[in-house]
Nucleic acid binder design. Structure first.
Lengths: 343, 343
DNA sequence: GCCTCCTGTGTAATCGATTGCAGTGAAGAT
DNA sequence: ATCTTCACTGCAATCGATTACACAGGAGGC
């Protein structure tokens, strides 16, 4: 149980600890004979570096921290997978935390990651404003990139998709399918995703001349339950919109489910769209039309920015980069592509 | 950017580093006046402990590592949430890794967690045999608990559910609903979950006199896609079983979807069951009857075992604990509870 | 033959927090 | 008045790996 240290290896090999370190870390000149002896001794003792000690000395941990609002949201887990994949290529590891959509927990997680000397942090902030102080404070201490969502009033890099452009795709598609009125179901406007998506929705609806009943803009949270509740409320009002645009797939799954339960046909009576293209979106009944985010590209860019910030010595923080990638529309069965407008 | 150390705080407060440490870690006697000065200095400088340095000195990190086969499987993410929740109460943090169902990646993750001096490891092994060496090697060095799945030939603690008992519940329920024949769709028998579940299925089928066509035992992987493919294959054989028992919910979701696509009514023509009770299981069409695992209890026990092992100084490894909790059956719409047997 | 340079190795400082040991001074005991 | 006792506080060692610096000895240049 007691760990093998470099000192024990050096003793067995009959050299100094410095030499052992030089052999094992591969830097510094070492004669072939000594190298062999050291490697063998290390092997025999089952030596393994103590990452903690190394990190203390180097002040580098080869570890990146990531904080997401909710690990049970499949969109974020797939984003995590993408990030992990990219990091693996760089020989870095991921330290993942779940903020449970609570800025207070989020702040603790960020602080704790910073205390653990991660080399950088990737965060998708839970809240559009309340996450600000903690994010900024963390960004002042080490490289930080915001992913997908972002929080205002901070000076950090960001990578995500152009939500407004995405909504344009969605609305154009719905309009083509004959929709002349639309409802919006999202989460409370406390994070950038919903804000941007709603803004894009509203603007394009106006441009296309689609009517939006203010009573049919419903904000709750990112969950199936909320989608169901919101849809029930819309159905209860008595006048159905031609389309229900949802801020994410979980909500959309709830909406289609509630429609089915209430005998409202999708896309016959109402078209429904999601956002994120999570795996389960195609399992809805009907399969969801949704917006696909290029997760791998997002992850790639985030890691790249982080590496750049590390190199720059994050003191010299220049203007921050905002990278908005272009999302694509995935058309499935919950909308009526190219149908003729209803009479 | 340069971090504030205890030395700077001590200088500002006009005391020694020892005193600062005593104040901040709360151990050792310190006069009220000094304590106030130190706290203020720390506050003013924005001091934050360096967890790395502390860990090196204490050889404790207050961190637990967790390795799961797949972070995109909602069952594991909810298990992770439960574990994180329990750990939070203990003031510990979770370091999460995804093995992508690959024993080689899994081994690397385990080694890397060990090198990072986590206080203990919770792992759900990817493979029923190939995960063995790495798991055992890790368990020799630090406290380790296997969760849900386990790998044979190792001497470690384990917490999970009684899969055989669960299958008894499932089969009895199906039998009551009139099923006299059944198919099984699982993953390749390379992990304990499938093994145990299949064993339980087979045994109870025999006891109840239900027939099982060997051609209708289909093994692939834990995914919706595989569920769809397997169901399609079963439908194609021409003779439908009365029930299709699935080794997890993802598979079951795929199966019901394929049934719908092929015009096979569930539960009218075929009853279908899942396993895990993931959130999406109730979103299937029809909502899935499934087995609920008591995740919070599982997490609780795992953390308890880990703590016990740490205290015991894992050298004195006694006989390992195997804790099988009792799962419950969640009856929804994909089965026909209490219906009369078909003629 | 003497000097320079380079390779290979060891010594010891370093990263930052913790803690055993020792020392100081004041309160209390005799 | 002298001796204990105890609450505080500081010094310095410690955790394990890395690395600046020093130094030995051999090769090569003049």
């Amino acid at each position: 149980m007691q760990r093998v240290t470099i000192a024990q290896v050096s003793e067995r090999a009959g050299v100094s600890t410095a030499t052992v370190s030089r052999v094992l870390s591969g830097r510094g000149p070492v004669s072939a004979a000594v190298e062999r002896r050291v490697r063998q001794a290390a092997e025999e003792l089952g030596y393994q570096v103590n990452t903690i000690a190394r990190a203390l000395r180097n002040s580098r941990t080869d570890t990146v921290g990531m904080v997401v609002p909710s690990i049970s949201n499949p969109f974020f887990t797939s984003l995590v997978e993408s990030v992990e994949h990219v990091l693996e290529r760089e020989g870095k590891e991921l330290f993942l935390s779940d903020a449970r959509s609570d800025p207070a927990i989020e702040a603790r997680r960020l602080a704790s990651l910073a205390a653990r000397n991660v080399d950088g942090i990737i965060v998708s902030p839970s809240h559009g404003t309340e996450s600000g102080p903690a994010v900024q404070k963390t960004a002042d201490r080490l490289p930080l990139v915001q992913l997908d969502r972002f929080v205002g009033g901070t000076n950090t890099d960001w990578v995500g998709v152009d939500d407004v452009a995405a909504m344009r795709l969605v609305m154009d598609h719905l309009h083509e399918g004959g929709a002349r009125s639309a409802a919006f179901v999202g989460s409370l406007l406390t994070n950038s995703s919903t804000e941007q998506r709603f803004a894009g929705f509203r603007r394009r609806a106006e441009e296309l001349g689609m009517s939006v009943d203010p009573d049919q803009v419903l904000l709750g949270d990112y969950s199936v339950d909320w989608g169901e509740a919101a849809a029930a409320r819309i159905v209860d009002t008595g006048h159905l919109p031609d389309a229900i645009v949802c801020a994410d797939d979980l909500i959309a799954l709830g909406v289609t489910r509630a429609c089915r339960a209430h005998g409202v046909s999708v896309p016959g009576q109402v078209q429904v769209t999601g956002y994120d293209n999570i795996e389960f979106s195609r399992l809805g009944e009907p399969a969801l039309t949704t917006v696909d985010q290029p997760r791998d590209r997002i992850a790639e860019e985030a890691v790249r920015l982080l590496a750049a910030a590390s190199r720059a010595g994050s003191a010299g923080r220049g203007p921050s980069a905002h990278i908005a990638l272009v999302p694509t529309l995935v058309v499935r069965d919950s909308t009526r592509a190219g149908a003729t407008p209803r009479p």
